[in-house]
Amino acid sequence: TILSEIVTLDSQEPKNGKKSKLAQVLDFACGSGSLLLNVRKQLGAHGIGKIYGQEKNITTYNLARMNMLLHGVKDTEFEIHHGDSLLNDWGILNEMNPSKKLTFDAIVANPPFSYRWEPTDTLGEDFRFKSYGLAPKSAADFAFLLHGFHFLSDNGVMAIILPHGVLFRGGAEERIRTKLLKDGHIDTVIGLPANLFFSTGIPVCILVLKRCKKPDDVLFINAAEHFEKGKRQNRLLPEHIDKIVATYQFRKEEDRYARRVSMGEIEKNDYNLNISRYVSTAKTEESVDLNAVHAELQAIEKRILQASSTHNQYLKELGLSLIG
């Protein structure tokens, strides 16, 4: 829901509210199609020109197609492709002519976390990755991100769920992250609570990307502590979701929750986007007045001596041993 609400807001001025229509929407790791259907739900049955999805697993691919039809999406209103997004084996996304390139007003995705892949020399020359470099073999997170981002329209919004590692890992991922930041494409970083998904208990983040964004800062939202705890899985309640979306929409700052961070500060941190560097949820400890504490201890000690003296006086009258 968070992703679908974010991508349907006006890309340049989110505070103006939802767009009236999206020409084309893409989820390149669509699973059963739930994210795409959530976007459609935000804008209504006629709010999207066409829905595009891609899924590698044949069973889930068939489920996505069935899901579209069951939710009243006509077969002329969606196109789901069975294939591998990382290899970009979908013909309509392989157009080399920029004027004929298919782009999307909204892109949502929840790809497999830290997926192992085979970054070949051929992929290194691929138009999606050539300007940024390849994601490491051990984690295709940025490969998924760059795949989607390549097809984002100039006025589009992309929201993708990724593991926190993409925010701070070094090497090839640091180079990709740095270029995305320097080029002004990372708009918002949202930290979510741990244990939200059945598949993993690790905390995840949402990256919001734009080709053209107005603010020259990055909005950090640390929502890690805003959830309802469950026995096996934590949940985001409507009020938690509304708070995240409203903070993004109006770019609001709030102590221990959200902050707009300048590119200068991010540069000083070597383009590390670790959320806790910028928005810590730790409560500030009260300062201790050592002089006041010392005076109080002296007063207590004085009262102890007075009480001991009085007590010894009673003991003396009773003919008992005095205390030291």
Rank of each mutant, 00 (worst) to 15 (best):
D270A: 05
S262I: 03
Y61E: 11
H185E: 12
G191K: 01
V261Y: 02
I244P: 05
R235E: 14
P136L: 05
R260F: 05
A307M: 13
L322E: 15
K182P: 05
G148R: 12
G133A: 13
I92G: 00
T103G: 00
K182M: 11
M263P: 04
T60I: 13
S309F: 08
N312W: 04
A172K: 14
I176E: 10
K316I: 05
V189E: 12
G72M: 09
K229V: 06
E55R: 06
A246N: 13
F151H: 00
P111N: 11
I300D: 07
G91K: 12
L180I: 01
T122E: 12
E77C: 04
L26T: 02
R235I: 03
Y115H: 11
V261P: 05
K21G: 06
D121C: 03
G165H: 05
S99E: 15
L236I: 06
G264R: 08
I160S: 11
P111M: 04
H81W: 13
Q24L: 01
I304D: 09
P193H: 11
G319E: 08
I190F: 07
F28K: 06
Y61K: 08
K179N: 08
K316P: 07
H82R: 10
N88V: 02
I241M: 10
I160N: 12
L322K: 13
D84V: 06
I300P: 07
R260W: 03
A172R: 12
K210E: 04
F197K: 02
S309A: 15
Q313M: 10
N62I: 01
H311S: 12
L86N: 09
F197M: 01
H71R: 10
L146E: 13
Y257T: 08
G184F: 05
E253F: 07
A159H: 01
E5H: 12
L146S: 10
R235L: 08
H311C: 08
S287M: 06
L180N: 11
I221L: 03
I92E: 00
S85C: 09
G49P: 13
L123Y: 09
I107G: 02
W117S: 05
Q249V: 04
I241P: 04
I202P: 00
V39D: 01
A292S: 14
G201K: 14
D289R: 07
Q249P: 06
Q42F: 07
K214Q: 14
T1M: 15
E286Y: 02
D121S: 14
A295V: 09
N38K: 11
A139R: 10
A258D: 06
F197A: 02
K41M: 11
N195L: 09
N269E: 15
V108R: 09
L102Q: 00
T310D: 15
Y52F: 15
A159F: 00
D105Y: 00
S280Q: 08
S276N: 13
Q12N: 06
I80E: 15
S4T: 05
T247I: 03
H81C: 05
R177H: 04
A29T: 15
E55G: 10
G53H: 12
G53K: 11
A299I: 02
G33D: 07
K15S: 14
F149H: 11
I2K: 02
D242N: 13
R277M: 13
G191C: 03
Y271L: 01
L123P: 02
P14D: 03
A106G: 06
M96D: 15
L318E: 14
P14L: 04
W117T: 04
